[in-house]
Design a protein around this nucleic acid. Structure first.
Lengths: 342, 342
DNA sequence: CTTACGGAGGAAAACGTATTCCTAGAAAGG
DNA sequence: CCTTTCTAGGAATACGTTTTCCTCCGTAAG
């Protein structure tokens, strides 16, 4: 592994050229496969580069090319549960194109957002991904930045800027179809606060599927509350009281499902024999820690990030997209709906 | 908010100079408060810059300065529970110095690590933070990179490169002291696999404090197992069987504590009245979701990141540090040891 | 009136790379 | 032998800054 000494400056193309006995321009051409050069010369330059451990200075290259091969990801989620997979997916798709990522966490403070935005612009990022922890529309980060922007797990209220969202309604539908396929017929749906768009969408998808199957579960039967285990514990008792014969409960989050699971065990109700349970998020520590482990809807957030990155790459190459695009969810089956599984 | 049109190139200092009717050099001096200039000229340049929404191109500046005001953070943790706070803290400390962060997730694959390392080096980062998900020593990322490196939440086996670690032993001691102060006298300690250095350190701290208080809890009494809720559930039964009169259990992670809590409730044991419970990690969704909520040791990972950043800044300014530095933990008291709290 | 000095700002170099244009030499054709 | 045509590689420019050095002008001192 060729490497510069600890205190030596890194080799530049000038050093390579000197060692190979050619001019700077020739060295550049040799390394990039451009121009007309003898094969022998190309090899000589390549050898010199290898010997010196030369790697081109991306800054200098960017200065010339007018772009930096860099994008910024701004999240309001404190790198939390939702942003992380999105960023991972985005980084994955961008990294393949040799693009690096500046990650910025605004902690949901507008002042920090402005500050990070300035920083990214003065670093001349080629594009921007704005990620959120809720899918609710947010104020646009700026319509005239001179840089393409894609929203992921959130959307802009001010325009038709491109946004990538998980298909929450589809997720609700998936849960419903799975429970129906198991032969369940009497349902409960416990979820987060009604003001959350995601909660409403999941509920709508669930209700639509029910209606499609000719079952009487309607929007009025949805129990809106909090995104917490405590609410899950409380709501489970409520469901057991108000819905005799209930044999399946769909929860708007894994945490709620954990709470429900707790209560059911305490009151001697078996999962999944008596009641099948489906969560949402497929959040490993939650679903695997539960007993039995939780069947859950996965939003495929990495895909959301990957798709957002693809749209951004398109926009960077002057083929911008517009409006909302959704990414399908998938259902992961575990013990809480299928006795066979762990 | 001054901004360039959507398709306009961003303003350069050349534009600013032209608008202000001065030379490029003068404009630069005016904006940076250098040289001898009339106040009126300074103002004129500042006004022009404001009007054009000028922000200096950090790349160009960096090219000249020989540094990029950029550092790389490489993690093996898939941006997981441990790395995230560390990175947040690091970003915090570095952002104040106008330094931006490239975050890279190796997914624990050596090949990816090499690839990211090459990328960061060709981007000429000023320094590198290597973060891990375990504190175990790992192979050095490279001793002759020509760039300062600091390890956070991990350490290098090949040298005395600086490393910042949480004080796991101190955390174990904190837990012990808290339980002793509550008057508890008969203890259990359930933790992860013995091969984990962190598990052994926490246990050692706990045992030392016990010995200091003259209690007979020794290294032999530690129950090593898995970092899972399932192990917590299992081990709790074991402790109840083998340690009659036990009135306090210290767990090596919050997940284990959740499992213990579950079992205790099922067998009709009250927390904290009969048994006080202390977890480790202070991981919000776990400690707050539990019933009662969990007292837990917080490793202050953001501080670990912050301190790592400070050491890196020192190294960048040619005052490198060496060896392992620890950051103290803190205990957060909640319902599982104190009936008053929720 | 001449010289020295100080203030204000301009000119130019430098950072590392890619690219465009140009030149020198060789080969080929007349 | 002279001219044309390639070919291989060199020279120069540009990218956007910062900084060093230099020049010009006005004023004060001798």
């Amino acid at each position: 592994m060729p490497a510069p000494g600890p205190n030596l400056k890194r080799a530049t193309i000038r050093d390579v050229a000197a060692l190979a006995g050619v001019s700077i321009g020739t060295a550049s051409k040799a390394l990039n496969g451009q121009g007309k050069l003898r094969a022998e010369t190309r090899d000589r330059v390549a050898a010199a580069a290898r010997e010196l451990g030369f790697a081109p200075n991306v800054l200098a290259r960017g200065l010339l090319a007018g772009r930096t091969f860099t994008v910024g990801v701004i999240t309001t989620d404190s790198f939390g549960r939702f942003s992380i997979p999105v960023m991972l997916g985005a980084e994955d798709a961008l990294g393949a194109g040799q693009i690096s990522v500046f990650m910025c966490d605004t902690r949901d403070e507008p002042e920090r957002e402005r500050q990070y935005l300035d920083m990214l612009l003065s670093r001349r990022v080629d594009g921007l991904i704005v990620a959120g922890r809720r899918i609710e529309p947010r104020p646009s980060i700026g319509l005239t930045l001179g840089v393409p922007v894609v929203y992921a797990m959130t959307q802009s209220m001010d325009s038709d800027e491109p946004a990538i969202l998980p298909d929450d309604a589809g997720g609700g539908r998936l849960a419903a179809e799975h429970l129906l396929a198991l032969g369940r017929r009497r349902f409960g749906h416990i979820t987060g606060p009604e003001r959350f768009l995601a909660a409403r969408k999941r509920a709508r998808g669930f209700c639509d599927a029910m209606a499609g199957a000719g079952l009487p579960f309607t929007a009025n039967d949805v129990l809106y509350g909090e995104w917490s285990e405590a609410w899950g514990r409380e709501a489970a008792r409520l469901v057991m009281r108000t819905t005799p014969g209930v044999d399946a409960i769909f929860c708007g989050s894994d945490q709620i499902a954990r709470g429900v699971s707790d209560t059911l065990r305490l009151i001697g109700c078996r999962v999944p024999e008596d009641i099948a349970l489906v969560g949402f998020d497929n959040w490993s520590p939650m679903v695997l820690g539960a007993d039995p482990s939780l069947t859950s809807v996965d939003m495929c957030l990495e895909d959301v990030g990957r798709v957002a990155a693809q749209h951004l790459l398109l926009a960077i190459s002057k083929e911008p997209t517009h409006g909302v695009h959704t990414v399908p969810c998938r259902l992961v089956t575990r013990g809480s709906t299928s006795p066979g599984t762990s």
